[in-house]
Amino acid sequence: MSDLTHTPDLSLTDRITGALSRVTPGRIIVTLLLLLGAWLMVFPFLWMVSSSLKPTSEVFDSDFTLWPKTFAGWQNYYDVLVTQPYLRYLTNSMIVCVGILVVQLATAVPAAYALAKLKFRGSTILLGTVIACLTVPINVTSIPIYLGLVKAGLLDTYLSMMFPFLVSVFAIFLFRQFFRAYPDSIIQAARVDGFTEIEIVLRLILPAAVPAAAAFSVFSFVSHWNDLYWPLIVVQSQEKMTATLSMMQYKSTFDINYGRTFAAATVVTVPMLLVFLFARRAFVRGITMSGVKG
């Protein structure tokens, strides 16, 4: 409550009446709708956490309880964190995600600057190509890329896990939209002052593009952290397994331990929640400023 509305000499009953007077049918409906939406978003997570504390037999019990009747939490989490090289998987995921993100930023920022601010022959066609590439899904290119990696003998390496994602068309497009709003006169002033084009990008435009970079980093990190498809194709050994991929291990032909799978899922999800919480403000600003929705 701001200082304006909060006057200390107001009596308790006055304040309750004041609060009630702001309750209108419209507000009630809006609040209920928002609560419903929030519940739809949050429930799967609650279900995941709740199931991770249950033995497999109870996960699909018809009478669902949030708190398990038989507490199997210790066992499930022990199996995930201790009996498996979970730290190894986490490190693998980290290496792949950071590697992808660094190369994506290093390629997308100069490309986006060129498309947004430099005048050159064919720039419109190049931009059109970039936008067209947004529509090509990974599934289309995965077989040729896979065959290439096999020929190069690169299967089961970090490079093979990052390779298809090193250049992000979405990043180029997002940054271009962001850079376009940067005043031309500042860039011209920099040229007169003796900046090279690369220095214009690094010293002037990038500092202004931090929100966009944060937004994109969250996109990129989350999607590659959660990626199951590509690691499943190129990873063969347990050494190179990512955290998400490691969840597949609990599934065998004869038996699925759902309690443990949910415990693993919980552990895999937590780092992403932390990333988002830290970058949330910059993330929201980046999305709203660039006018691009992910």
Partner: peptide
């Protein structure tokens, strides 16, 4: 040296 109409100072 060029002085611009909107000054074009480096904002950060």
């Amino acid at each position: 040296a060029l002085v611009f109409q909107d000054y074009a100072l480096y904002p950060h």
